[in-house]
Each structure stands twice: as C-alpha cells, then as structure tokens.
Amino acid sequence: MDSSSGIQEPFDLIRLSLSERVFVKLRGDRELTGILHAYDGHMNLILSDVEETILIVDQPEDGSVPKNAINVAKRKMNMLFVRGDGVILVSPPSRA
C-alpha cells in the first residue's frame, strides 16, 4: 500500500487532514473547529481560525434541571495550541 496516502494507523487520518478544517471534541464540555497545522503523538494540536463551542447547562436555584437546559456559547480564536490529553476525538472534513 502507498504509505503516503493510505490509512494504516490512527494518526494517518490526522496527517491527511493537515491544512484542512477539522472538528475536535474535548473533555470539559467543549468542541472546536479549526484548520489543522500541527500535531504530535500526544495528539497535541495547533489549529488556526478556531471556533470554540462551550456547552452550558442552565441550573436554577432550586436544583431542578429544565428540559431545554443546554445552551451554547461560541468564541473565536486566531491561533490555538490544544493539549492532547483533553482531546476525545478528531474528525476530518467530510469528503464528497
């Protein structure tokens, strides 16, 4: 198999996503999309043009949890290093 294009191990999927927009799900109720520029074996990432989505759960004083309790906050960042230990998954752009 051609090792420069084939996917033989998990990190190949990330390598083929370099300079493309990826979706990253993180621990701590956060998700990112951004253009992938670098990664290493710890799954540390460097992304640019990042949009972060933070999930916020409304919690009234009485301790109940309402049905539509989940809100999102969004934040944009130019260039971001993401520490690998917080990464749950990296998803490449969908290809037609």
């Binding site: 993180l26 460097i46 640019s48 960042m77 260039m79 971001l80 290093f81 520490r83």
Partner: peptide, 8 residues
C-alpha cells in the same frame, strides 16, 4: 493546560 492562544 487546556489551551494556549498563540500570536498568529
């Protein structure tokens, strides 16, 4: 560390 915002 969770993130470091870098000077692009």
């Amino acid at each position: 560390v969770r993130y470091v915002q870098l000077p692009a």
